[in-house]
Amino acid sequence: MTFSIMLIMFIPIGIIVDVSEKVNKILENKVPFPKVAAYYLDFIIYFANLLFPIFLFLSIIWFTSKLANNTEIVAILSSGISFQRFLRPYIVGATIVSIFALLMGFFLVPKASEGFNNFRYMYLKGNGRNQMRETSDVYRQISDTEFIYASNFNQEAKTGYNFVYEKFDKERMLYKITASSIVWNANDSTYTLMNFNKRTVGELNDKIETEINKSMKFNFDLEDLTPVVYIAETLNLTELNKFIEKEKKRGSANINTYLVVKYRKYSVPISAFILTIIAVAVSSMKRRGGMGVNLAIGIALAFSYVFLDKIFGTVAEKSSFSPLIGVWIPNIVYGILAFYLLRNAKR
């Protein structure tokens, strides 16, 4: 109940703060009201899922601190009930919330994330439509034997520049195609290559073909070459696994970012258990400063967890550091802290 009330209290506050920051942009871009309403529905789901372990943590501290201040925990333990038995309802509650969050993260949150991010990039960011995709130095392995490169892609014009296509047979190059630009033709699903040049590698001599422009079909489309930067957040678990496998084969430079999103789907619900144990251990002791001291300690621990999670998540995305380890380090560190605090609380 306390957890639900805390969500109901803080979500409207978050909406009010967000509206105050973005109302000028919304009015400036003349965004229709239905789109704004849909954005804030997605906003609620997106941030409720993102912050639910923190809300659960703070609600447990609030509730348990009230019990401790009223000396009810002392009475419960003095009656012969063990600390493990006292902890059991908290674990059951954390399990229910975690299962709900896990299902949300797999199926509901991706859809909300798509709407939330689309709105932000379309209406709220100054150059958002161009920032939605990574369009510079695009390099992809589109199959086991095919590689492409473009220095830049203009998504609106469906045009790539300084295009290179290479075809291999194992480690031997069969031919290489270059063009100053490549344009997608939606009518017949072909590409037009300007200043076409094809070099076929022979055993003794190479064959060179050139044309001013040439229409060709390739085994790729521009949407696959330049996916939106937040694409992984918008896919359910099955789609995300398939997408990651496809991007691995293509040699995507953003594979760590996609893996961080995947591993967080599992780590966030587990953090609920860890933070639940920490919250009970911290707030079950009656302190001289009362509930305020417990809340201060709890808030400090909660924000330090968020800080640690952001730091290692960013390191995993931007470096060769293992995404799996980066995502789970906060849970490991706070899991050790939870074990230590629980032992002291039992005493």
Rank of each mutant, 00 (worst) to 15 (best):
residue 335 G to L: 09
residue 128 G to L: 01
residue 49 N to I: 11
residue 95 T to A: 14
residue 134 E to F: 09
residue 108 L to V: 12
residue 246 K to N: 01
residue 193 L to P: 04
residue 102 L to C: 08
residue 9 M to L: 15
residue 264 R to G: 15
residue 151 S to N: 14
residue 92 V to G: 13
residue 88 R to Q: 13
residue 99 I to Y: 06
residue 3 F to S: 04
residue 79 S to I: 01
residue 324 L to C: 04
residue 251 G to M: 06
residue 289 G to N: 07
residue 317 E to P: 06
residue 8 I to F: 15
residue 322 S to C: 07
residue 30 K to W: 07
residue 193 L to E: 03
residue 193 L to W: 03
residue 184 W to T: 12
residue 220 F to E: 07
residue 128 G to D: 00
residue 85 R to V: 12
residue 324 L to P: 04
residue 37 A to E: 10
residue 24 N to W: 12
residue 242 K to M: 06
residue 29 N to P: 05
residue 293 V to I: 14
residue 118 N to C: 07
residue 248 K to D: 08
residue 192 T to L: 14
residue 327 V to M: 02
residue 250 R to H: 01
residue 146 E to I: 02
residue 169 D to N: 12
residue 181 S to A: 11
residue 131 Q to F: 10
residue 5 I to Q: 09
residue 74 V to E: 13
residue 54 I to T: 10
residue 41 L to H: 10
residue 132 M to L: 11
residue 81 I to S: 09
residue 1 M to K: 15
residue 255 I to V: 14
residue 43 F to Y: 12
residue 320 S to Q: 13
residue 218 F to P: 03
residue 111 K to T: 14
residue 181 S to H: 04
residue 71 T to I: 14
residue 68 A to E: 07
residue 13 I to R: 03
residue 273 F to Q: 04
residue 321 F to E: 04
residue 70 N to M: 09
residue 243 F to A: 01
residue 45 I to Q: 05
residue 240 L to Y: 02
residue 225 L to H: 05
residue 116 F to M: 08
residue 153 F to N: 00
residue 243 F to M: 00
residue 114 E to A: 12
residue 310 K to L: 15
residue 67 L to S: 09
residue 102 L to R: 01
residue 321 F to D: 03
residue 8 I to Q: 07
